[in-house]
């Protein structure tokens, strides 16, 4: 923790391990995550974990939580910087479960306070801590007035490398990230697919065709059926088989290739 000299005490839950803080990547983003944001997280987090980064984020729903979950899913360790006291107990079941998983997987829950209730000013304070813990920062999706930009501002003052994931100029949650790039405060985060993009694992040509089609974007059954010119009923049953085999997954009606 050479570069991190806090003026305040930090409270934590979990097993304290200095090595956690050796190489930290803070990833922040909007609560209103889009489909694109989720895809980005699922692509980049496993790579970062593999490269030995500890992933730091803010435990809020949206991008932050997806980052924690993606890290846990690929066996990484993660530090959640809470916007409330470590012992504040008003969380719901899902949040409690995530807390538990983070701690069980060797990660930490960190906070500036012990019993503090979340309120307007606690979040900027948390953003500062996140910026300080991370050696580098990635902003995935951010609106124009958002906590993610506060974190970026702090990291900029601390002279840490900042990366931003560009997004469509029409999306309100990409305005902030695009602005960071335009202002020269952040560099574009480049994604390099690992290895050959996708090996076709379909058991037969039809399944291979489907996997090809959804290899870089999620599509719904009707859309796949339309593009392949085949009945929706057949496509549906093939997708189920692929899903049971673990090759694709479904979210909100769309099918994605698993990594």
């Amino acid at each position: 923790m050479s570069n991190f000299n806090p003026k305040y005490k930090l409270y934590y839950q979990g097993e304290w391990d200095e090595s956690l803080f050796a190489k930290c990547m803070t990833i922040v983003g909007s609560r209103r995550m889009t489909d694109y944001g989720r895809r980005v997280i699922e692509k980049i987090v496993p790579q970062l974990v593999q490269a030995g980064w500890t992933i730091v984020s803010g435990f809020m729903y949206g991008v932050d939580r997806a980052v924690h979950e993606a890290t846990l899913a690929c066996g990484g360790r993660t530090i959640a910087v809470l916007g409330w006291g470590v012992n504040w107990q008003k969380l719901d079941d899902r949040e409690l479960k995530l807390e538990e998983e983070i701690v069980n997987s060797g990660g930490l829950l960190v906070s500036l306070w012990e019993e503090q209730v979340p309120t307007l000013w606690t979040f900027p304070a948390r953003d500062r801590v996140m910026a300080a813990i991370g050696h580098e920062l990635i902003v995935i999706e951010a609106g124009v007035k958002s906590g993610s930009l506060i974190t970026a501002e702090m990291a900029y003052k601390l002279k840490k490398p900042i990366w931003a994931v560009p997004g469509p100029i029409t999306s309100s949650v990409s305005l902030g990230t695009n602005q960071l790039i335009a202002d020269g405060k952040a560099k574009i985060y480049q994604y390099h697919p690992l290895g050959p993009p996708l090996k076709l694992r379909g058991g037969n040509p039809q399944e291979g065709e489907i996997l090809d089609l959804i290899s870089d974007q999620g599509l719904d059954v009707s859309e796949i059926a339309r593009r392949l010119g085949r009945p929706a009923s057949d496509i549906g049953s093939e997708l189920t088989m692929l899903m049971l085999r673990g090759d694709v997954e479904e979210r909100e009606g769309k099918y994605f290739v698993v990594k």
């Binding site: 009707s222 339309r226 009945p231 549906g236």
Partner: peptide, 8 residues
């Protein structure tokens, strides 16, 4: 228009 799965 479309929605083949729903029609099914």
């Amino acid at each position: 228009a479309g929605q083949e799965q729903a029609k099914r």
